[in-house]
Design a protein around this nucleic acid. Structure first.
Length: 567
RNA sequence: CGGGGCGUAGCGCAGCCUGGUAGCGCACCUGCUUUGGGAGCAGGAGGCCGCCGGUUCGAAUCCGGCCGCCCCGACCA
């Protein structure tokens, strides 16, 4: 591609709203342009990288026998009513009506369509197992997009679906994906770590996320320092301290004016936050008020909580709702409360003589004991793992790190096949639900993560596997020395004939501009053709990643690029 | 949805407080010079100053409403 013809513009200044390196560089180098919040156009360079990433994914999916197909983005809402997600999913599912007033949605994923197709096409156990995938645009109306290209509303995703006879088959399909994903991220130059993940309220039995560590990541990961445990904080189960061994003592009201927070309470009473019981309040999507009791030095995990009470959504409760249940915000405890579901963290249930709210403005109770002073509706682990907590496997400290989810694998089970009637007739003559799995990779997010991992002060440094072009040919003084343009044109044309497309900066720009752009754009090799290089014997080849330079005959470079392309 | 910030040429910004012909750098066009690290000279083009309304003789500037974008939080198969 001749740079003089390429639909692109590089920018000298950083765009004002880009903070992440990937966002800043992809805009500056002319790969993408923002159209709206969380909505981007891919310019030719960006599209080329995207297709190369897709190609890696495609090859590895094909390798495990996954068949590529294509399913629609716009879908009738009825399909989503059948699975129940139309009702359960919030406003991130974009709903609209077509001209006849029929309810439609923009798909976020394609479990419904797959299940519906299975219903139509699969009737016998002989047709299973089956692996299918497509690479396609998704839309999720995120409340707030952020982090440049990491969290967007419209994005391209590879989603695949496994369809098996039974859970043993699902285990195998899951394992195939696990291995394929490991190869994919390796080829993309991403250091992805695998963490245990939330299976969500839709059910399912097991899920893993492939994560790239990044300070801008929106997921918090819990990682054992010895490498024995890795999980998304949403579900991470870590060890908890042993509570003091004390006999329960008589409760005692104590004045704590103005101490409406745990920090104030601990200061006023001169005790540790670990001797307090904190009450936090949520309302479920179906209207239940949850009173959650954790120790004062822990935070509630909303994911664990939602799973424990089987809630599709949670929101913080309003002060009025808390009062209506007989509690006083700031000084609340379940003692004397009514019309609320009381969930107690297991550590609190084992801890004697905590300080809890007295449900009276300005007062707390000492020596509160779960079971004696109030009865929980449920006792379970509902807190977030903390930095330094013990690893559940080996007891070493865990660290909290931010990560970006580049892929996930998920055992769905029969959560879609049963409601959608995706069944097969078994060898036993009985009808069975198809056992499904679902597996995603966000393509655009991977492109951004590759740039995050592969850039320097000057610009992008593409790994050869995904670079839009293998080399960036730069001419110097071509306007003045006709020989330069002739040699470059010839090299470019011969490579093109051989099926090797390089980026050719044929613009009449000063050397500084051309070198700066070449480094910004990030092709693996920068090939300079100038009077000086010709005098030295050919072209000067700079390896973008290392800065290493060498001069070689034009024919040698040509052969090298042709070999790399076919190799 | 809550808090904060911003909206002036393709990009980065000044002007606004204190109302009076819309500016700067880069990019762009023409000509000449220049050609190994963001060139020089000369000339030129490009603006519903986010939108609507109000105040005023006069609004980019003051007032009100709305929209959009960014950041933090809430949220997040």
């Amino acid at each position: 591609m001749r740079l003089s013809q390429l639909f692109f513009a590089s920018l000298r200044d950083d765009p004002a709203d880009a903070e992440m390196a990937s966002h800043r560089l992809l805009i500056r180098a002319g790969y993408v342009r923002q159209i709206g919040s969380g909505i981007y156009s891919l310019l030719p360079l960006g599209w080329r990288v995207t297709r190369r990433v897709e190609q890696v994914i495609r090859e590895e999916m094909d390798r495990i026998g996954c068949q590529e197909m294509e399913m629609p983005v716009v879908q009738p809402a009825d399909l989503w009513r059948e699975s129940g997600r139309y009702q359960k999913i919030g406003p991130e599912l974009l709903r609209f009506k077509d001209r006849t007033g029929r309810d439609m949605v923009l798909a976020m994923t394609h479990e419904e369509v797959v299940a519906s197709l299975l219903h139509d096409l699969v009737s016998s156990y002989r047709q299973l197992p089956l692996l299918i995938y497509h690479i396609q645009t998704k839309f999720r109306d995120e409340p707030r997009s952020r982090g440049g290209l990491i969290r967007v509303r419209e994005f391209v995703m590879k989603d695949s679906y496994s369809c098996d006879l039974d859970t043993a088959g699902l285990d195998h399909s899951y394992q195939l994906h696990y291995e394929a994903y490991t190869r994919i991220f390796g080829r993309l130059g991403l250091d992805a770590i695998v963490v245990g993940a939330d299976v969500g309220i839709m059910g399912g039995s097991l899920a893993h996320e492939f994560m790239v560590l990044n300070e801008w990541g929106e997921d918090t990961l819990v990682l054992c320092e010895r490498g024995d445990y890795a999980a998304n904080q949403q579900i991470a189960m870590v060890g908890k301290p042993e509570p003091p061994n004390e006999e329960p003592m008589a409760t005692e009201e104590v004045a704590t004016p103005g101490a409406a927070t745990i920090a104030d309470l601990a200061r006023v009473l001169e005790i540790g936050a670990d001797r307090t019981a904190k009450a936090t309040f949520f309302v479920t999507g179906d209207g239940r008020l949850l009173t959650v009791i954790t120790r004062g030095d822990y935070e509630v995990s909303e994911t664990k909580l939602a799973n424990a009470v089987k809630a599709y959504s949670l929101r913080p409760a309003q002060a009025e709702e808390i009062r209506a249940a007989g509690m006083v915000p700031g000084y609340a405890s379940p003692i004397g409360a009514h019309d609320t579901v009381v969930i107690v963290d297991d550590l609190v249930a084992r801890s004697p003589n905590l300080v809890a709210g007295a449900n009276r403005e300005g007062f707390h109770l000492r020596n509160v004991n779960v079971g004696r002073d109030f009865s929980p509706d449920m006792v379970t682990d509902v807190v977030n793992a903390r930095n330094g907590d013990p690893c559940p496997k080996c007891g070493a400290a865990v660290a909290l790190r931010n990560g970006i989810e580049v892929g996930n694998i998920f055992k769905l089970g029969t959560d879609f096949s049963i409601p959608m009637g995706a069944t097969y007739l078994g060898e036993d003559g009985e009808r069975h639900p198809i056992v499904m799995g679902s597996y995603g990779i966000g393509v655009g997010r991977n492109v951004a993560c590759i740039v995050e991992a592969h850039h320097d002060q000057k610009g992008i440094v593409w790994p050869a596997e995904v670079a839009p072009y293998p080399a960036h040919l730069v001419t110097i003084a071509a306007a003045k020395e006709p020989r330069i343009a002739e040699e470059a044109d010839g090299l470019y044309a011969r490579l093109k004939d051989a099926g090797v497309e390089v980026l050719y900066d044929d613009r009449d720009e000063s050397p500084g501009v051309k070198f700066t752009d070449a480094e910004l754009l990030g092709m693996p090799l920068i090939v300079t053709l100038s009077p000086r290089s010709l005098a030295a014997g050919g072209v000067e080849v700079t390896v973008r990643a290392t800065g290493e330079r060498s001069v070689k005959p034009i024919a040698e470079l040509e052969a090298q690029l042709r070999t790399a392309a076919t190799g």
